[in-house]
Amino acid sequence: MGVDRRQFLKLAGISAAFGLGGSVGFQLLRPGALDAAERMPTPYQMVFPKSQGNSEVMPNPKALKGRRWGMVIDMRKLTVEKARAAIQACNYYHNVPTIPGKQNIKWIWLTGYTNAFPEVENPFADPAIKNARFIAMCNHCDNPPCVRVCPTKATFQREDGIVMMDMHRCIGCRFCMAGCPYGSRSFNFRDPRPFIKKEYPKYPTRTKGVVEKCTFCSERLAVGKLPACAEASGGAMVFGDVDDAGSELRQLLRSRYSIRRKPNLGTHPQVYYLV
């Protein structure tokens, strides 16, 4: 982003004059450049600097790196036991609460064939498929509607494709829940803490009033670990780089027929089901 301070101030001044507020106009004139602007110290940060001296930040060198993360779920291998183990692992490592009733929280869960794939309705399909229990989770779409509708960029797409949640920024408007065509998002209607069976101290809980969902275990990828569900699924869930033609994930996708949830909506889901 080749924006120097002078240029920024000039543009911000012009757009403020248009009554849009500096940063809004800036975003309209130069999309993407705002991130550079946000890094400028605010008056508050000038008094209380955000870091000391010549410190710096960097990713963990052990982190798994991918250009486009995705997941393959092998329905031949996925038994209900394996799925339950995956769900349990996810719930434990992310402090997902078990709230009874219709205000519940789900990151990944089991559902029926017609629920997961309502548009591929076929009464005479192979019973092994028709009666199977499928894992539903966030599809980390390439073209995510939830990110499109979020008014604060609290949900956003990382460069490696992961659709992330910034719980610090979420205002709880629930537009993303209306936008998600997969029902992958949950809202904290109440304080979730009393409903967490066993707290995992290394991962935060959530607070009432924010939306949450699967993050493809970004916190585990960052230290070189696979997502908790993939690790616990006994090989039925394979995580990998969709952009890497040599990855195990791509080999699986070449070798077997796979389907995705509601591909007709153009969201480009990145969770593939081998059937």
């Binding site: 955000k50 870091s51 930040v57 610090h168």
Partner: peptide, 22 residues
């Protein structure tokens, strides 16, 4: 507090998780 806010944004939004201090 500003340091923690800075850390928060770096970790959540940019995926940078290590901090090399002064």
């Amino acid at each position: 507090m500003t340091l923690l806010n800075y850390w928060r944004d770096e970790v959540v939004r940019d995926g940078d998780r290590l901090y090399v201090s002064a």
